[in-house]
Amino acid sequence: MTTAFWIITIVTLLGALLAVTLRNLVHCVLSLILFFLGIAGHYFLLRADFFGTVQILIYIGAVAVLILFAIMLTRNVTGEEGPREILGMKWWSGAVIAALVAGVLLHAVRRDATAAVASSAPKPLSVADLGRALVGDWVVPFEGMAVLLTAALIGAVVIALEEVQRRR
């Protein structure tokens, strides 16, 4: 278990580091996907199967693909133009924000540790329960989401299509 933890942690950190340092935007997104995978691995290690699956489905399946789409439809992917300096003058503001976020998270985790012991653990949610809920009780909103995503996809293609035609 510990070995798995360290491997996944290193992969996660590596992915995060590469995502902010690489020059080519597509490479950055691919590193970001590696990072997302690492986080999913952590969820699995913590026995939060559902979170792990959702992490893969949403972050890799949707968010990363969305970013890739957005990049493909933009010019200047290779990052040859623009500012070359990554650690610019404003690096300290980033550090302050990172420290603040870490502080809030640590605070929350420490407070939650006591609460988690006190409250009784809820019944673990299995994927089967989730599936049954989605096509049972919640079937209309679920199908509605399906139509919504179709509409959004068609809309995105229509907008991109015109963009491509204009560039020619």
Binding site: G144, L148, A151, A152, I154, G155, V158, I159
Partner: peptide, 9 residues
Amino acid sequence: ELVTICFFV
């Protein structure tokens, strides 16, 4: 949202 997103496009 379905209605609104269609109208966005």
